[in-house]
Design a protein around this nucleic acid. Structure first.
Lengths: 252, 252
DNA sequence: CAGGATTTGTGCGTATGTATA
DNA sequence: ATATACATACGCACAAATCCT
């Protein structure tokens, strides 16, 4: 009785549940840790101790290890054999690389999807845009990061190239990480004092971006991608530079 | 004495060893499995049974599981929860996606490295080219796959963009996988009968590629990338299409 | 620079959930 | 519908390496 019901009963007379999670413990833990890292609750450089996580989560050390390795493979954690596993950081060089590569990917993405655009695309993209603007205006910094990624992911999803989407997901986590690091510095300093100006320019900036994306001039859109990402990069770099790498990185 | 020496002794008077491997068992097993898959000894669709691998390798199941998950994250294996882990296959659509995306990456890569090219670049790239040609002429199919990847990897290594190199490594494994699948069909059929013609056109084709790469016309090189990859794609696709996907893929 | 504390890496037995013949 | 094979997960033990005092 207390068990989870199988979805064998007639599905017609039941409300839509959100796809009963066939998640293994490993996946659940990885998800939780990922959220903690990408929301900044686990600061870069923090060591993750397997045994402590195991007791805190109430699971065995093996499950923790597997979840940890999943995040290592995705670049959110770094491991030094026998020394420990730490939340990854990003130096200035890597940040620049990520933004530069993203630029190339996004140009490719829009070139591919350009002739496929339809009403669905315009509607969904606009919808994500307005929900992003709403979040920014509400000054919810953590949610803004998430909303921005959600917005910028849509072209990759719509493009229909699964391989490209995979690469984007990998890259987007590093982008999110750079935002987290940036935000850790910004928090309580610039964001509050200059909040209005920041919000205004952000909305205007992203507005130009989506306008071009919904327009009819592909070349203009490609230039807009360059401009948009360059602005994003310098915003992040201003905060990244003075921050020294907490630990030496290990390339495995 | 029989232990691996630490690299603490004065490094000056010693020849360059290849970075004393601080490999954990997990890494060693993953490496072995990767080679087995990419060399075709483990055919696509094959199920990997943890317990059997564990006894065969003489290690515990934990180590096997971790190595397996590493390869899953790299796209060489696919996992269906509680069902098993299988060697990945590539359908025609994914193959086309991989080649298309590679084209975009390679254009970006050459655009970035173009002004940085120097004598080291020309020398090393040429060296890898001639060793590739030698392998092709010797009709060693497995080695050819490896040599071709080694050749095409150099621009990414030289470019100096570590993030790009990471993405390339991920993509190149799928490319290698497509070659393996292609080769499984080709083996003993076309390769033998038409070997001479194949070898000749391959060498000529790659020759044009490296000539452009060492030349002074970037636009010409970018066009050459398009041409080279299109040829590669149709060569693979000819073999990929008739092969049905052994199992339904699971997108996790 | 020694040595102990800490943490990871690894092995193994076992129990349970899930898929598949 | 049952049975079997297997993946998933737990718990403990010990070895090995790092870190720190």
């Amino acid at each position: 009785m207390s068990q989870v019901r199988k979805a064998k009963a007639k599905a017609a007379d039941l409300p839509q549940f959100d796809a009963v999670l066939p998640m293994t413990r490993r996946a659940q833990i990885a998800e939780t840790l990922r959220n903690s890292i990408l929301s900044g609750r686990l600061a870069p450089g923090t060591q993750l101790v397997e045994s402590k996580l195991a007791t805190r989560f109430g699971v065995s050390r093996g499950s923790i290890r597997e979840a940890i390795w999943e995040l290592i493979d995705r670049g959110l954690l770094v491991n030094r054999p026998y020394a420990g596993t730490f939340v990854a950081s990003l130096d200035a060089k890597t940040t620049a690389e990520v933004f530069s590569l993203r630029c190339a990917l996004e140009r490719y993405c829009f070139a591919e999807l350009w002739p496929k655009r339809d009403e669905t695309f315009r509607k969904e993209f606009t919808q994500r845009y307005s929900s992003l603007v709403k979040t920014v205006r509400a000054r919810k910094y953590f949610d803004t990061i998430e909303a921005e990624l959600h917005f910028h992911s849509y072209p990759y999803e719509f493009c229909g190239n699964q391989t490209l989407l995979d690469v984007w997901h990998q890259l987007s986590q590093k982008i999110q990480l750079s935002f987290v690091i940036c935000q850790a510095v910004e928090r309580g300093v610039e964001f509050k004092s200059d909040g209005d100006r920041y919000t205004k320019s952000f909305v205007a900036n992203t507005g130009r971006y989506i306008d071009a994306a919904l327009g009819d001039d592909l070349d203009k859109m490609l230039r807009e991608i360059d401009r948009h990402l360059e602005l994003g990069l310098i915003a992040v770099m201003r905060q990244t530079d003075p921050l020294p790498t907490p630990r030496r990185k290990n390339g495995r």
